[in-house]
Design a protein around this nucleic acid. Structure first.
Length: 693
DNA sequence: CCATAATTCTTTTTT
DNA sequence: AGAATTATGG
């Protein structure tokens, strides 16, 4: 194994194979290189590839790591378990579904499905969705699950009426999932833990199978993930985790960066290695990133340095609107392409998926090759979701959620009344909707599903899709409509077919089971069969762990980034800043920061000041090509000009959280207690979002 | 009782 | 802007 291309610390991290190891790795310090080399080294030392498990956070990162390890060790890379926590959990569940009370053909519900289940339960329980938002219930349940709180335990924590209702819904929800022979995303983590708790002998099997466990982005692990990794590594203690607190950006999903801080406490004799040299970015880019992140209060300062060249300044451009911004990005990309930079070395990154729309439109017009990574845009289209629902129901007829979705698609005269009768019957007799169907037009539908079930046994995936579109009448309905919209839908369905075809060509025969699992866990399956170089468009969250020569961070505006919903709360704002740090440090050579003076947001025109993060970068590092000077945030945007005096105990109204009581005051901050579930929040004293009642 | 029109609601990040 | 829900028409 040649290790000459590693520095001393990296080498040390690779060579320390046994026992717990914590690698604190700054951005661009070569952590992926260390991880991949370490895996190769383990294999060279004689460790079975199948006894290694490497966990990443996104599917994209898993894929990347697989490819890099493949380059190092060749074909054996396929025997290493490299996946996200969720895929890993699914594998364990699939191997033990019977012990967990599921049938083999269980399905995985996506976020929308989950919400429908909750709405259905709330309706059944006569809970008004206006008093309790189903979305909120969904988040609460999800958080509880990720904190490994069962419905029973949830009851113990109840202090307000709200929680009592949620705990009831939570209980029903879990039952409903089992009845549907379905799992949600969180189950992929919690069920393996449940399994291991109930069957120590099974745990032992996994402990012996996976002798070496490596976890990337450890700062983003939540309680469930933390416990799962702890359980599996408990016997051999060969656990190596890599993380960087400055890149913790998943607290909304229950991630707890403290898992890193506690590592040394959790694992006796844990060794800690610091990787502090950045090999990725120019000094200028690194300085820009550092000047932003140093504004975070809750942070341990660290010494990330670089030997790279100074490089060119960060380029700041303020466009007129979002379309001009996109055009600017495109024209700059053309410039860089002429300079010899390839498309695959260019990325455009943004805070929210919605921003990709305009970008895509302009890229499409420009003719530049691009790819949108992780866009559920395509999979979220109605016709695609309907088709997937058909596939899910064919595979698992007990999946009431998906059955209800398609029972009247295309329209076959089954309306709300028929469905609600069916639901009542199914609930009463404790059977699935499918089983409850015995007569009427519904029976026709049931026969259709049965027929397709038979078809699925004899045809390939792509053939099955054709059969679904034909026999269901989806195709016919769209063809008869003869509208532009219907044509687009037909085209999308064709495109979906080419995706499955492509998938089958790459993977050989694909079972319905494998395909559904893949599509449930991976938001986008490789859409392009040509290996053409493409410009990458993706969110800041999705881009974590990747690097590009040229990076455009677009939408650098207050309200978008930092996001409006995150700019009230100090902790959330710091997470936005870490996200900015992640975004900036993706760039190797050239970094662009752009924004727009005005932008269509949620259907209305809005004018946002430049992001505060731009101001946090030293002016000396920025090259602004806009006419106006680098503008500091206009304080009037954030603070009322006339100070309003509040008193402790006073009731106020806050734009986001509603009514609250002032519980604390000092020179700069005001602390307000809101009703459950919001709790106390700290604001700038004169924030314009706070009003007298 | 179903399909369509009108109206209201909600806008982050991922598995 | 777009989805989701509710009111109206056939």
């Amino acid at each position: 194994m040649k290790l000459d291309n590693l520095n001393e610390m990296q080498k040390k991290a690779v060579l320390k194979t046994d026992g717990p190891l914590l690698i604190l790795a700054g951005a661009g310090s070569g952590k992926t290189k260390v991880l991949t080399t370490k895996v190769a080294y383990l294999i060279e030392k004689g460790v079975e590839p199948s006894s290694i498990v490497a966990i990443t956070f996104t599917n994209k990162a898993a894929k990347e790591m697989k490819e890099r390890i493949y380059k190092l060790v060749g074909i054996e890379a396929y025997n290493i378990q490299i996946s996200t926590f969720h895929s890993f959990g699914l594998k364990i569940i699939k191997e033990n579904y019977n012990l967990l009370g599921y049938e083999k053909n269980f399905t995985i519900l996506d976020s929308d499905d989950t919400l429908s289940v909750i709405k259905k339960i709330m309706k059944r329980m006569n809970i008004d969705v206006k008093t309790l938002n189903p979305r909120y219930v969904k988040n609460s349940i999800s958080s509880a699950k990720n904190e490994l709180i069962t419905p029973k335990e949830y009851e113990k924590y109840i202090s307000v009426e709200y929680e009592k209702i949620i705990s009831k819904i939570y209980e029903q929800y879990q039952k409903e999932l089992v009845k549907n022979n379905a799992l949600d995303f969180d189950d992929l983590l919690t069920l393996p833990i449940k399994l291991f708790n109930e069957y120590p002998s099974v745990l032992k099997v996994y402990q012996e199978r996976y002798k070496y466990i490596l976890i990337d982005e450890y700062q983003d692990t939540n309680k469930a993930q933390y416990i799962l990794s702890k359980m599996i590594s408990a016997k051999n203690k060969n656990i190596c985790v890599v993380g960087d607190n400055d890149q913790s950006v998943y607290s909304f999903r229950g991630a707890n960066y403290k898992n890193i801080l506690n590592f040394e406490k959790d694992y006796q004799n844990a060794e800690t290695i610091l990787l502090e040299q950045n090999y990725r970015s120019t000094k200028t880019i690194l300085n820009a990133a550092n000047s932003v992140i140093k504004n975070n209060q809750f942070r341990k300062d660290k010494n990330l340095w670089s030997n790279n060249e100074v490089g060119q300044k960060v380029i700041y451009h303020r466009a007129y609107d979002e379309r001009n911004e996109a055009d600017y990005v495109i024209s700059e990309i053309r410039k860089r392409l002429k300079e010899g930079i390839t498309e695959s070395e260019i990325a455009v990154i943004y805070r929210t998926n919605a921003q990709s729309r305009v970008l895509e439109e302009e890229f499409l017009k420009s003719g530049l090759p691009y790819k949108i990574v992780g866009s559920f845009f395509f999979y979220n289209r109605k016709e695609i979701k309907d088709l997937i629902s058909y596939l899910k129901v064919i595979y698992n007829e007990k999946d009431d959620v998906n059955l209800e979705r398609i029972i009247n698609v295309p329209k076959r005269g089954i309306g709300t009344k028929t469905i609600s009768n069916l639901v009542s019957k199914a609930t009463l007799e404790n059977i699935s909707l499918y089983e409850a169907i015995t007569s009427g037009k519904e029976l026709e539908f049931k026969k259709l599903i049965d027929e397709l079930k038979t078809d699925s046994e004899t045809s390939t995936l792509t053939e099955l899709i054709d059969l679904i579109l034909d026999k269901s009448g989806i195709k016919k309905e769209l063809e008869q409509e003869k509208s532009l919209e219907a044509d687009i839908r037909l085209e999308n369905l064709e495109e979906f077919k080419s995706i499955t075809k492509n998938f089958e060509e790459n993977e050989g025969l694909v079972s319905l089971e494998d395909f559904l699992n893949e599509i449930s866990l991976v938001s986008d399956i490789e859409e392009h069969k040509d290996n053409k170089d493409r410009i990458t468009l993706m969110t800041m969250h999705a881009v974590k762990g990747l690097e590009f020569d040229v990076v455009f961070v677009v939408g650098m505006e207050e309200g978008i980034f930092p996001h409006a919903n995150s700019s009230f709360d100090k902790q959330e704002l710091e997470e936005e800043r870490r996200l900015c740090y992640v975004a900036i440090t993706r760039a190797k050579k050239i970094l662009y920061l752009t924004n727009a003076k005005r932008r269509m947001l949620y259907g209305k025109d809005s004018i946002n000041p430049p992001s505060r993060f731009i101001n946090e970068i030293d002016d000396s590092l920025i090259d602004s090509d806009s006419n106006e000077p680098l503008k500091k945030i206009d304080k009037s945007d954030m603070i009322n000009t006339i100070p309003i005096e509040f008193q402790i105990g006073e009731v106020i109204i806050q734009d986001k959280y509603g009514e609250g009581i002032v519980v604390g005051l000092d020179d700069t901050f005001i602390t307000i207690a809101f009703n459950y579930p919001i709790g106390t929040k700290k604001f700038l004293k004169n924030h314009k979002s706070i009003k007298k009642k």
